[in-house]
Design a protein around this nucleic acid. Structure first.
Lengths: 143, 143
DNA sequence: TAGAAAACCTATTGAATTAATAAGCAATAA
DNA sequence: TTATTGCTTATTAATTCAATAGGTTTTCTA
């Protein structure tokens, strides 16, 4: 039940891009230095975010990356879903009758579906703008 | 973000034990046959559930396993937490200043904490009794 | 009181995944 | 035209996953 580094690094990279929105294209070198993440590893993560239409890129001198949408329009769900592939807690949910033929009678599947709904609902409610502007306490119930 | 087979099999085993509660000790052989799970693999999973004080065992002939508590007193959270070790979405939450020294300023940690709270709240609300008695639709929002 | 049946314990393994590193190619603005 | 940047593919070491295997110990019962 852990989010992989690919998901976590993706979120940090996207937050960094949101913090430098309206500054034109940002070189990956700058992001990797600010966030202390391997530039080479980030390069491998980017295709996942590009497939989700989350990034615009510019090659060549003074090139770099930019958010494809405004920070207020990018949700954490989109980012983690693009990076991780799927946020379903069990893989049989992604391709049900093929991966397991007992979906119909499965007593546990509804539990995982309910969990998945709660996860999506929560992550859908947080945008990059929220992360930059909100207080730490806004995401948790207490303190 | 996937629940491992250890967690999934644990839940299925515990549901099976709940369905045969008040029938005395249930042999692992019976559970593995009914649930179509490797008996040898279940043997390795059991210590995790025992550590969480979820099981009573009896050795020898006519021995087996029993729920340590009534089905209505066992939550899915307890089961998955025992099996998986921890349900935190990022490992730095388990041992914060040691695994990462930037907890204080981390913009992403509050998001993961909020997610963790939602996950626990949901899984805490489901008991083995619920799973056996409730309708499928009780866990999901729609349909 | 032997013996079958069950839990319990430890080691091994093959496969997959993770988290990188490495080395170079392609595009482009100054 | 050259430095800078994104892009692509290959390789790898370590770890985790999901099991299989083989044996020991306990205990009921016939």
């Amino acid at each position: 039940m852990k989010i992989s580094t690919r998901g976590r690094y993706s979120l940090r990279m996207m937050i960094d891009l949101a913090q430098h929105y309206n500054e034109g294209y940002i070189a990956l070198k700058d992001i990797s230095e600010r966030q202390d993440l391997s530039k080479k590893y980030l390069e491998q993560i980017i295709p996942f975010l590009s497939r989700g239409n989350l990034l615009k890129a510019n090659k060549g001198h003074l090139g770099g990356y930019m958010l494809a949408k405004e920070p207020s329009e990018v949700t954490v769900r989109e980012i983690l879903e693009s990076a991780e592939g799927s946020l379903t807690p069990v893989s049989c949910m992604d391709d049900c009758p093929n991966l397991c033929d007992k979906c119909e009678d499965c007593l546990t599947l509804p539990i995982y579906k309910g969990l998945y709904e709660r996860i999506l609902q929560y992550l859908d409610g947080i945008t990059l703008e929220d992360i930059i502007n909100r207080q730490v306490s806004d995401f948790t119930y207490h303190i």
